[in-house]
Structures are given as structure tokens and as C-alpha cells.
Design a protein around this nucleic acid. Sequence first.
RNA 1: GGGGUGGUAGUUAAGUUGGUUAUAACGCCGGCCUGUCACGCCGGAGGCCGCGGGUUCAAGUCCCGUCCACCCCGCCA
Length: 602
Amino acid sequence: MSTAEFIRQHPRSHRCNDLTKAELGRQVVLYGWVHGLRDHGGRRFVDLRDRDGLTQIVFKPEVDRELHEQAQKLRSEWVIGVAGAVQDRIANGGSPNPKLRSGEIEVEAQALEIFNQADTPPFLIEDNIDTAEEKRLQYRYLDLRRPAVARRFLVRHRVNQVVRRYFDDNGFLEIETPFMVKYTPGGARNFLVPSRLNPGCFYALAESPQIFKQLFMMAGFDRYFQIVRCFRDEDLRLDRQPEFTQIDVEMSFINEEEIQGAIEGLLAALWREILGVELARPFVRLAYDDAMTRYGSDKPDLRFDLELCDLTDEVRQHGGGGVALLEDVAKGEGVCKCLRLPAAYALSRTEADKLEGFVRGMGAHGLARVKVDKGGAWTQTQMAKSISEALRLAINRKAGAQDGDFLFFQFGEPKLAAMVLGRLRLHFGEKYHLIKPGDWRFAWIVDFPLFERDEKGQWVAAHHAFTSPRPDHVDKLKSAPQDCRARAYDIVLNGVELGGGSIRIHDTAVQAKVFDALGISGEQAEAKFGFLLRALRFGAPPHGGIALGMDRLVMLLTDAESLRDVVAFPKTQKGTCLMTDAPTRIGDELLTDLFIRSAAPH
RNA sequence: GGGGUGGUAGUUAAGUUGGUUAUAACGCCGGCCUGUCACGCCGGAGGCCGCGGGUUCAAGUCCCGUCCACCCCGCCA
């Protein structure tokens, strides 16, 4: 029988996970891949797999001798169709398999069609394999067959559907924005697309729909969302791909609370429908400064304590306490921060020494530490000997140091000191298993600075140039930019930044003041964002929005270790696709058509 | 651009101070097996030790370079 004939005579009736005792006695047709084979001579078992699950097929010589013979030829990953009867495993003299949804039944084969044979796959199509990711990416279509991997994409699909239904129910319009947009310098690097029709000109691939979604508000669309691909030509990380998906949202006539409420509603719907978990709302709000001070991060993992403390004041009051390392802090340069590891978490001296290398890898100059002894004395390092008693006692008091605790210190540049201890905190959280599974700690990080200094000391927008300052800070834009706070917010979950957004500037006068504070001239602003500024003058509603990292969301919902696990065809750290070999060199003839000459070394 | 980890049968790993024929498990191939589901038993095949150079009587092992993958910093509003 030909494939076409078999499919015509035996159209698929079920998927592998559909069959349970409810279908006993039914004639069914299943299509799928040979997942496993067990040959007992007189009984041949095949585990048939499709995207949903497994069903056991049994071939019996007394039912059809020829079919039973044919089954001997089957091999892993062959593609077959089977028609037969659903039977009770126990009644057939077997035993149920509690690991399978279909584990109480099996299908007694009465017709078999081999649609395709298969080479032996380079790795097993099973959940718990230990194969290098390199190999898995090279044969991604095989990796995607593995049930644990496939499951993540079924969840990803569910997320898409829940998001669409939620926003539709709440009056949001889903409208696409262009991928090929005008290049604007600053921010993330853009991928460029040459314009054949406009020699020497390039489009940029949109790093986000930011400006377009604001223009939707000016168009009066009021509430917008989009599940949209974004492109950034930056270095990759565990949680960063050059193309990624955002759930992009913008609303008019609202404030921070309304946007945050809408997103909390969305996340609650997702957690309810995907995980069956009811989230407590509203989420915690945490000021940026508090997050940095207490957790050393603007995306703190709130599932465990081990908070940092700031010792800058103590060090200054005691003039550095005779510790050479603290002299700069005492003179007013930089900060002194401390992480206390309670005695309950056993850390050997060797392990403590090794942490030095761990923090140096993050750019720290070193890791000063002491061990607290009885009565608040310090031991183990030079700093323990040289410090004045007064400062030592002051630090013990501030840090709450007890006998047997370790204290780890960072001095100097505030952000680096916070980051290093923040990462050390995460390291301890992991090392001592302080995180319990199934704990979802959402938080809104608020009161962000409006500006930050770039490497040249220039003030730049911390979020982006259209972020609204707090109304009471507009007067300080020029005089005290470091004190200006933005109407911006990040949503953080378990130490992962899920997304961020802001209330935008809708007032041309305020926008001009922000540009002025950023040192952007009227002409520069006009050249870069002229169309947006013009739109502001034609009746812009108060508006604001947010974008959520959709891939990261799925990563958290599926407990994936990497963003690559939830992207169907991800790129490697060098931005290549191991399956297709993209990107490739392009010949001169083709480049000539695009008016491009490559300067790459050959 | 910088720091780190790794690369040995199809896969995952072991491989001592440089030494004779490079091991194992799983997978694969052949045979047996009527209730398995990580089936079991018997037998077998399978290697450019990432690539290039160097040291040496001798290199999977030591040295230099390079490529690839991963983690981190910078970068990413």
C-alpha cells in the first residue's frame, strides 16, 4: 500500500496522548515516530511518539503473522502509521505504565505503514540526555522532538494565546509595526538592511517598536499590544538573543498604577492558566535605591534574604579605622558595602579564599573579608588586624555580626561594589539552597534615576529620552540631574528582569527640557526624532507603556535554563546558527547589486 | 575587546610522571526471547584524541598558535 493510499484509507483518529481506558475497544489510527522498540520474539512492542506523548503499540503473530514479521524491521525514529484496536494492558496479560497518560492501554496493530525510514540519530530522542548543546543545535529538529523540549514550545504557544485573549478582552488592539525602520544612533546597535532601491542607504531592524507604539497613542488607538520580534546587534548571553520577542504594550490616559495593574492581571492570567497558580496581587513595590542598597541589583531575587548593608557612613565617621584599603572611602570617594554570611552557612577558609577569584572575574579588585570571632573580634585576614576597634564595633553593629559569621566587603565605585556583592549573594543563595522551588516573587522596581552618566561622564537617559520625569522633578532637570527620578518601572521575577516601561513625555516643553539636560540640541533632536516631536504638537494624549520579555517569561514558566531552550531556532553566542550555518559570506556580484563593498579580511 | 570552562568512538565520559594494542557506558549491527516499557541474554563493528605547528627516540598527555561551544565582564533603553 502506498503512503497516499494508507492516509486515505486510515485518516488519523487520535494523537498519542489521547488514548485512555475511555477508548477501550475503539478502532484507532495513530501516526508518529518510533520512539522505542522492545522485541520479545512472540511479542513486539513499539512506543509511538507524536508531539503530545507516547502510546504503546503491540504486534502479535496470532493477529497477523506478516505484520508481526514486518514490525521486526522497524527502527528508532522511523515514521509510521498504525491502525488497530485499543486494548486493556492488564487484560492482555501485561502491566500498566504509570509514567504514560496512555499507560493503561495499548493499541493492537492491525495495519502498519512505514512512511519513512530514518538514519540513526546523533543523540537519543529522550528527555534526560547529556549531549552537548552544540550537537543539539546542529540537529535542532531532532532536539525539538524530545518531549521535554517540545513541551516548552507547547507552553510558548499557550502563552501567546493567553496574552492575545487577555488583551483583546481588555480593549487592546493588536497592530503590527515595521521591522525595517529608520536608523537612529544611540541605544542598542542595530542590524542594518541595505536598500537596493536607494543606493548607499540602509534600514535598521527595529530594536523595539517604541516610537511607533507611542505614535499609535497619538493616532488615538488608546490601547495597543503586540507580540513582536525585536532585533539587537549586541553580544549574547544566557538570557539574550539577537532576535527576541516582546509583549509590547502602550496605553493612553493612564498612570503607572493602571499599567502595572494591567500587567499584573496578565501575569496572573498566565500563571493561572499555564501553571494553575493564583498570584497574590498587588505585587511588591521596591525603590531602585533600596534594591541596590539591600540586594546589590536592580533585579533582586527576593526568594531569600542575605541582604547587603552599606558601611560608608561608619567608615567615614571613623576615618577609615586605620585600614589602608578604606582610605579612599574615608576621604569621600566611593562607598563601602558589606555582605554578611551567617555562621549557619558553613564556609571553609579554602572556599572563602576561592571567592576572591569569583569576584575578580566580575571586575572586582579583590574581596576583603573577615571572620567574626567570639566577642566580635575579627580573624583570618590582614584587615582584621589593622582595623581600629571603634570601627570594627561600628561595623559589627551595623551588619549585625555574630560569632562565626563571615563579612565580605567591597569598596569604591558604588555600582561595581553593589554588583559584586549582589552576585556573591546570589552565589550563596544557590550554594546553600536558599531558594525553594515554586516560589514566585514578583516585584515592581520603581523610582529609577532619570539620567545616568556614560563612560565619558555625560548625562544620558537611563531608560530612554521620552521617559517622563516625576512632575516635581522637572525643575531639577538642569540644576540637579542626578536627583531626578523617572516615571519608569521594571517588573522583576525571581531575579530576572521580565520587562520595563515608563510614562512617556507628552508635553513638548518638558521634552525640550529633557533634551536640553541631555545636551541634545534642537537640531539634533529634530534630525533624530523629528517625526515624534512633530506628533507631540498635534495633540498627544498622556500615555505610557511597558514591554515584557516574552522569551524570558516562557523560560520562567517552563523552568528552562537558557533562553535558547525556549527559542525554536536559537543562535549561538557568536550569533551563528549551527544548523544552517548563517550568517554566510556573500559574493561580490550580489553585494554590487546592493552598492556594498565588503571590507572583511578574507 | 577581556576573564574563565570545555573539545578523545554516533553520544557521554575515563585516560597516571610522555611509553608498547586508547578504555567504559549508552547507542548501532547480527542472533535469541510471548508482557516489556532504562526489557533481558549472547556476539560484533565502530577512533584524524577539534585543527596547525613545535619539543622528544616516543605526544591524547608537554609548549605555542588557532577554531568551535558554553559562562561572566564590557555592551545590551
